[in-house]
Simulated assay, not measured.
Amino acid sequence: MLAERAHRTPPLPLIFSVTLIAIMGNSLIAPVVPDLLRDLEVGDGGAGFVIAAVALPGVIVAPLIGLMADRLGRRAVLVPCLVIFGAAGVAVAAAPTFEILLAGRFLQGIGAAGLINLAVVIIGDHWEGERRTQLIGRNAAMLTVGLASFPLLSGVIAELTSWRLALLPQAFGLVVAVWAWRILDPVRPQSAGTIRQQLNGLGTVMKRPSIIAVLISGLVVFLLIFGVFLATLPLHLEREFGIGAGGRGVILSIPAVTASLVAFNLGRISSAIGRRTVLVTATVIFVVSFSLMGAAPVIGLVAIACALYGLGDGALIPILQDTAVTEAPPEHRGAVVAMWVGAARLGQTLGPLLAAALFTATSTSTTLFAGAAVAGVLLVLVLIGPLGRRADSAPAQQHA
């Protein structure tokens, strides 16, 4: 239990800024990868290393950062993460060689590993009930907006100037670090005990069926997002419909609109129909949308399927985050949410590999149907498992 609630409720723009910085690592660099590879005289094979260098540290570092946040307090961990990310971002923008760029990207991955989960944890520390669900949903909506707008921003800057200047917005992490240090109260756990006691307590919490279910669900959802939607659908659009890069970009951006609408209003939706109903409905939408993508004979139906998919995406991710926050005791909240992020990153890593193996051996349509089948398994887990049961029966509260 925290010794005391923070004296000041942190401003939402600060929390949302932390979330937006967390996704700058890949969303800003994606459009300029060909430019930086050409400038640093590296072949196309280097693109995978550029992306993986940020993603890889999170699988291991995120749970450790969660443990530290529970032991030392949120501010003491968040601020160094922001400083590392911002400073490494400047180093990446100025990197004279590809090796230095990769080293900077790896450091960015260490800093970024704690940002999204700590933003969610801070929301969980200061709000409860419907208001917490609402804010986690709006935080997810901000993330979706950032994912849609940052590539456009960096692409325009790179066209007008250079890829190095396009990456400089990452330095904003240093500004937010100062802001967080001045605004967040240095609240520390009342008694974290020894490291052994902390780990033993966390081990007990991690054995809860609800925690196990939310971790498995997070892994599966991100496996589907990165393996089926992001890795398989673009190839499906090219192979089956002959759509070029511009058209694929438009179709792949459709879910950002519907996902933002749902995530922004998630608190209201969850209050009206219940968390469990939201989980079931969103999972059913995944089954239907992936099936429609695989079966659609015309591109218009694929676009409709993408819009449906966004509805499920906009509900599933924040509601799972909210469930992880709700089910975790305050003294282990940072570690539990970080473990959820670690599971999500594992799904993010495995999804494209499994999908690529399947559509190489069969077809993109088969892979999309396989995604629907996996979503169906997740639906069974949600229907028979513990997710959302206790949260729906708990009274909604909010801290002043």
Rank of each mutant, 00 (worst) to 15 (best):
L237K: 05
A335V: 11
P352D: 09
V287T: 06
R345Y: 15
R182V: 13
V220N: 02
T194E: 08
G342E: 02
I29V: 14
A22R: 00
F359P: 00
A6D: 12
V54G: 07
A338K: 02
I384A: 12
F226I: 06
G351Q: 04
D313S: 13
F359D: 05
L78D: 02
A94N: 03
F241A: 01
A158H: 01
R275A: 02
L152Y: 04
L379G: 08
V175T: 13
C306Q: 12
R164V: 01
F98N: 00
V325M: 13
V83T: 12
A171N: 01
I21T: 00
L346T: 15
V178A: 15
A22G: 14
G371D: 07
L67C: 01
L358F: 09
K207I: 10
V90D: 06
D125H: 02
T326I: 09
V262Q: 10
D322M: 12
A372Y: 02
L40N: 05
L107K: 04
A372C: 04
Q197F: 05
G203T: 12
L202W: 00
L279D: 09
L350W: 11
G155I: 07
L379E: 03
P329A: 09
D44T: 15
H7A: 15
S27G: 03
A93P: 03
A400L: 15
H236F: 10
G347W: 03
I23W: 04
Q198Y: 12
A91E: 00
M339R: 01
P386S: 11
I60G: 00
V90A: 11
W127Q: 07
E327H: 12
S191A: 15
P80K: 07
A55T: 11
I299V: 15
P96D: 11
P189M: 10
T19C: 04
L174P: 08
L311E: 06
V228M: 13
G312E: 01
L118W: 03
L153M: 14
V83E: 04
P151D: 09
N265T: 01
G124Y: 09
F286C: 05
H399I: 14
A112M: 14
I251M: 02
Q190P: 05
A282S: 14
T9G: 09
S154P: 07
P80T: 10
P63M: 06
Q170G: 08
L292Q: 06
Q198M: 11
Q398M: 11
L40F: 08
T97K: 07
R208C: 12
L14T: 05
I23D: 00
V382F: 06
S393D: 14
S191R: 14
P255L: 13
A47E: 08
A55V: 14
V59H: 00
G385R: 02
T9S: 12
F222T: 05
R345C: 02
G388M: 00
A6P: 10
A3C: 14
F290R: 04
L14G: 07
I384C: 09
S154G: 12
G137A: 09
V250S: 09
V79W: 10
R239A: 05
P352K: 06
G246M: 08
P63H: 07
M24L: 11
A141Y: 04
A328S: 04
G312H: 03
L14S: 04
